[in-house]
Design a binder for these strands. Structure first.
Lengths: 360, 360
DNA sequence: CTGAAAGCGCTTACAG
DNA sequence: CTGAAAGCGCTTACAG
C-alpha cells in the first residue's frame, strides 16, 4: 500500500475525494453516518490527516508567523529581553491558533534560504538597521512588523521613544555631576564592519527630530545620549563610545577597554541591561565600587535588573510582543502603517550616585 | 496584473516554467546569461520567489521541526529550563538550516488543530504522560522525539536517570537526619484531574525497574523519592505529597499548604527548581530560616539556582536540546528507537542542612 | 447531501 | 542547455 491520501480513502469508501475532504474540514456538510464511516476507514488505513502543505497551498494561508532575529536563535534564547518579547508575541499568537516559526541568523547565507522557504503569513522582524536580512524579509512581500529596529517607512513599527529615554538616562548621570561618561553601544556583529568605517559622528546622529522615528533603537539611543551631553555642554568628542553586541560576555571586553582609560570614566552608559551586567562584572572583578567609584546604567529593565539594583529604563517588554502580534494578526489594513510608541520610565536604583574620588 | 508566479515570468521571458524554476533552484542548469534575464524580469514583476507551500508540497520536505509544549508558550518562555532546552535545540537546527515551529497549548482544542496543520518534518515533544496532545502528535506519523516525558515505546527519548537522581536527592536529606519530608511534585494542570482520582500509591510507583525508562520524568522522580524513603524505613504514607504545576507562583500555594502542616516538615523536596523557588518564597515570607528550620532541594539546576544557593540536581539542559535535535535531524533510521540517558549530579549548596529545632 | 472539475504553484525525472 | 508532461494532496465554488 502506497501513501494514503484523501483519494485512497475515497476509493475505499466509494465516495468522492470532495466528500472525504468535507468529512475532515467541514463535518457539517455530510451525514453523520457517512462521516463516521469515512473516519473509520481513515483510521484503518492509518491516514495522518489532510496534508498541511497541500492545504496551505490551496487555502493560501499558513496560520504561522515568522519571527526573525539577526542573531543565532541559541543566542536569542539567552537574552531575557528577547524571551520576554516572545512571551508577549506567543500570547496573542496562541489565542488565534497561530504558530510561531522562529528564524535566527547563525551564519551568513543560511537564514536567507530559510526565510525564503518559510511557510508563513507574515514576519515579525527584530533587526538592526541595514542588516541584510531586512531585505530578504521584505522581498517576500508579506505583512511585516518591526520591533525597535529597523524603522522602515511604510512598515508597521513597535517601539518606545528611545531617543527621549536615552536623553533621560544621560541627563540623570549629568545631573548627578558626572562629566567623564563612557558609552557602550549595542552594535550587533553583522553591522560592525560598517560601524568601523562610519564613526558615530554628529552628522550621523543629526536626524530630523520632527519625524521622530526615522531610525531604530540603536541609533536613537545614541542620539539621545548625544542630545543630553550637548545640552549639558559636554563635547561629544570627549565621550568615548565602544560598540559591542548585546551579550554579557562580549560586553565585558568593551568594559575592560573603557575602564582602562585614564582618567577613568566615572559613569558608564550601557545601551542594554545585558551590557550593563557585563560592565558590572568587570568592575567587580577589578574591585571598582559601584556606585562609589563608578555609576552604571542600563536599558530595558529585564527581570534580573531589579535584584541587581541596576538603574535602567523600564520598557514594556512583553506588551511590545502582544502589540506586535496584534498588528500582524489583525485583518484591518492600516494606512498609513501604524507606528506604536509605548511608555517607558527611568528607574533609579543603586548603581548610580554622584561621582566619587576622581583619583585611581 | 494578477499574482506573479513562475509561469508569469516564463511567459514574459519566453521560456518554459521549468527553466524559470531552474533559474531559482538550480542555477547551474542554465546559461548565466539566461538566468540573468530571468532574474531581471522577476525583479521587474516584483516576484517574491518560489512559493514555499508549493515547494514543500512538491518536495515533500518542510525544513522545519515542530516543538510541542503542553503548556501555553507564553509560559514556556518564562521557564528557564524550557528556554535552556530550546537554546540547545535551536543550535543544531540552525546549523542545518532547519526552522523551529513552536506550538503551545493555550487551551484545549486550539493546539490540536495547529499540530494537525503544522508544515513540519517532525516533532519534539515535551509533555507529561497521558496528555491528549501526545496522541495528536503521534497521529501525524512523523518522526518524533520526546524529552523527559512521556516515554513512549518505539519513540526516541532523551532524558536523564530521573529515578536514580531523585533517589539521591531524598537520600541526601535522609542522610542529614530529616524524617519529616514533604514533596512538591510537578503535575501539569492538564493531568490534575486524573491525579486527583489516582493518588500516588505504591502500586502506581511499582514499576519494573529493569525496563528503566518505562515512564516519564515526573513519575520517575516520585518513584526515586519513594525508593529512598523506603530504604530509610520511612513509611511512604507519612510523606505528604502536593502536586502543582512547574510554575513559581503556583508552587507557592502548594508550599503554603505544606508549611501549614503540624508538625511542620523539616525538609521539602521540590520536583523542579522553579517549584523550589516558590517554596523558598513562602519560607522567606513567613520568616522560616533556610536551612536552619527548613531544608529545600530542587531539580534541574537552572541558572538562577547557583546564585540562590539551591541544592539541586544538575542536568545538561542545553545538551538535551542538542541531542534531541540531532536525533530528529539525523537521517539514519535507528532501530530500536534510541533512548539517550544523560548524566546528572547532585549539587549540594546552602539550602540543605541537618534538621534544626523541631518545635514551631 | 454529494460529486466532477478546476486549480493552488511548484519540481522533477525524462526526452530532446 | 531547454521544455512538455506528470503530479505533489488538497479545497472550493458550482452544479445536481
Amino acid at each position: 500500500m502506497e501513501r494514503v491520501t484523501l483519494q485512497t480513502i475515497a476509493d475505499r469508501v466509494g465516495v468522492s475525494r470532495t466528500t472525504v475532504s468535507n468529512a475532515f474540514s467541514r463535518p457539517d456538510q455530510l451525514k453523520e453516518e457517512l462521516r463516521q464511516r469515512i473516519m473509520e476507514v481513515a483510521e484503518e488505513l492509518d491516514y495522518p490527516g489532510p496534508n498541511p502543505a497541500a492545504r496551505t497551498l490551496r487555502r493560501g494561508r499558513a496560520g504561522v508567523i515568522g519571527v526573525v532575529f539577526t542573531e543565532a536563535l541559541s543566542y536569542a534564547f539567552a537574552d531575557s529581553y528577547a524571551v520576554g518579547f516572545l512571551r508577549g508575541l506567543a500570547r496573542v499568537a496562541e489565542q488565534s491558533g497561530t504558530g510561531l516559526h522562529l528564524i535566527g541568523w547563525p551564519s551568513p547565507g543560511v537564514a536567507e534560504e530559510v526565510i525564503g522557504d518559510a511557510v508563513v503569513d507574515g514576519f515579525c522582524l527584530f533587526s538592526p538597521e541595514g542588516h541584510p536580512l531586512v531585505e530578504t524579509v521584505l522581498r517576500r512581500r508579506l505583512p511585516v512588523v518591526t520591533v525597535d529596529h529597523p524603522y522602515v517607512p511604510g512598515v508597521p513599527f513597535v517601539g518606545i521613544e528611545d531617543r527621549i529615554a536615552a536623553r533621560e538616562v544621560a541627563a540623570h548621570l549629568l545631573g548627578l555631576g558626572h562629566r567623564r561618561i563612557a558609552i557602550v553601544a549595542a552594535q550587533p556583529l553583522a553591522a560592525q564592519a560598517e560601524a568601523r568605517t562610519r564613526p558615530v559622528t554628529e552628522e550621523w546622529l543629526d536626524v530630523d527630530l520632527a519625524g521622530e522615528h526615522r531610525f531604530g533603537a540603536g541609533r536613537a539611543r545614541l542620539a539621545g545620549y548625544h542630545d543630553a551631553c550637548l545640552k549639558a555642554g559636554l563635547a561629544w568628542e570627549d565621550v568615548p563610545i565602544h560598540r559591542t553586541t548585546n551579550d554579557r560576555e562580549i560586553a565585558r571586553r568593551a568594559a575592560e577597554h573603557l575602564l582602562d582609560l585614564r582618567p577613568r570614566p566615572t559613569a558608564v552608559i550601557a545601551a542594554t541591561d545585558e551590557i550593563a551586567f557585563g560592565v558590572m562584572d568587570v568592575a567587580a572583578q577589578r574591585g571598582i565600587d559601584i556606585p562609589g567609584e563608578l555609576s552604571v546604567v542600563g536599558f530595558d529593565d529585564v527581570p534580573a535588573a531589579d535584584p541587581a539594583g541596576l538603574t535602567t529604563v523600564r520598557q514594556p517588554i512583553t506588551a511590545k510582543g502582544t502589540t506586535a502580534g496584534r498588528l500582524l494578526l489583525e485583518p484591518s489594513r492600516h494606512d498609513p502603517a501604524p507606528c506604536v510608541l509605548m511608555d517607558h520610565r527611568l528607574v533609579i536604583r543603586r548603581t548610580t550616585a554622584p561621582p566619587g574620588d576622581p583619583s585611581s
